[in-house]
Simulated assay, not measured.
Amino acid sequence: MIFSPQSRVWIYQSNRKFTSAEEDVILKKLEAFTSQWKAHGNELMAKAEIRYGYFIILTVDESQANVTGCSIDSSVRIIKDIEQTHNVDLFDRFNIAYKIDEEVHVQSKEDFETLVNIKNVTPDTIVFNNMVQNLQEFETKWEVPFKNSWHSTVFAHLL
């Protein structure tokens, strides 16, 4: 399947890394969900993936059918189910993910602030912008240097 660059994207970041066994179970559940995901009876062209063991990414190409409030609610329900089943937090927006030596780390806002303060996180550290809205933004603006991210405005006083 080829997805339009304007396809909608939702990113759910875990507070801890999934085990490979968890990833397998979660992907099977998400594949079953996306294969039958509908909006007002219309099938959605959708896919789900897990990246770096931390991020669940749902993509929907709206060129065939638009996502509706009800269809978004159904996706949130499946994510909440995954959250409960695997005892992870997928909705805490105050957890910040970043990469050091190609390894992803997730910290609370306070711990991340400390890392910026002591220069363990630098302007060139890659951070994840989970606020991207579409596939094009996901491919170009999801993994960005700290200095080019929204994070730098929140922590500007530390740079």
Rank of each mutant, 00 (worst) to 15 (best):
T114D: 07
Y52G: 04
S63P: 02
V60N: 12
I96E: 12
N129H: 01
F155G: 11
M131V: 06
V88Q: 09
E143H: 09
H86I: 01
F91H: 08
Y54H: 09
D24A: 07
A97E: 06
V67W: 00
D124Y: 13
S7V: 13
S63F: 01
V144R: 02
S74Q: 07
E83D: 04
Y52M: 08
K38N: 11
D89G: 09
I82G: 11
M1T: 10
E102D: 15
E23M: 09
E23S: 02
L135N: 03
F155N: 06
C70M: 02
Q133Y: 04
I82S: 03
E143N: 05
N66P: 05
G41L: 00
Q36S: 14
N15A: 05
V116T: 07
N134T: 04
K28W: 00
N66C: 07
F3N: 10
D24E: 08
V127Y: 03
K17M: 13
E23V: 08
N15W: 13
L159H: 06
M45A: 04
I78C: 10
G41R: 03
D111H: 13
E23L: 15
L58Y: 03
L90F: 00
V104E: 06
Y52Q: 14
F112H: 09
I118Q: 11
G41Q: 01
Q6M: 15
N129D: 15
P123T: 03
E113T: 09
L115G: 02
V76P: 07
M45D: 01
I72R: 10
H105M: 14
K29Q: 07
F91S: 14
N87Q: 15
M131R: 14
E23C: 06
V144A: 01
H40V: 00
E102F: 14
S35L: 13
E49G: 10
N15T: 04
V9W: 02
E49V: 06
S71G: 06
V154F: 09
V106Q: 06
R51A: 00
F18P: 14
E143Y: 12
Y52F: 08
S14H: 14
V132S: 02
T85Y: 00
H105D: 08
D61M: 05
I118F: 06
K38M: 05
S20C: 05
F55C: 05
G41H: 02
Y12S: 12
E143V: 07
E31M: 03
R16A: 10
I56V: 11
E143R: 15
F55I: 00
V106W: 10
A97W: 04
I26F: 08
Y52T: 04
F18K: 07
L30I: 03
S71V: 04
I79F: 12
Y12V: 00
T59N: 01
V67F: 03
H86L: 10
S7Q: 13
G41C: 03
I11T: 08
S74N: 11
L115M: 12
L44Q: 07
H157E: 05
Q64H: 01
E43S: 13
F91T: 11
Q84E: 15
Y52R: 14
F94W: 12
Q6A: 14
I78G: 07
N117R: 08
V132E: 06
V127F: 14
N129S: 15
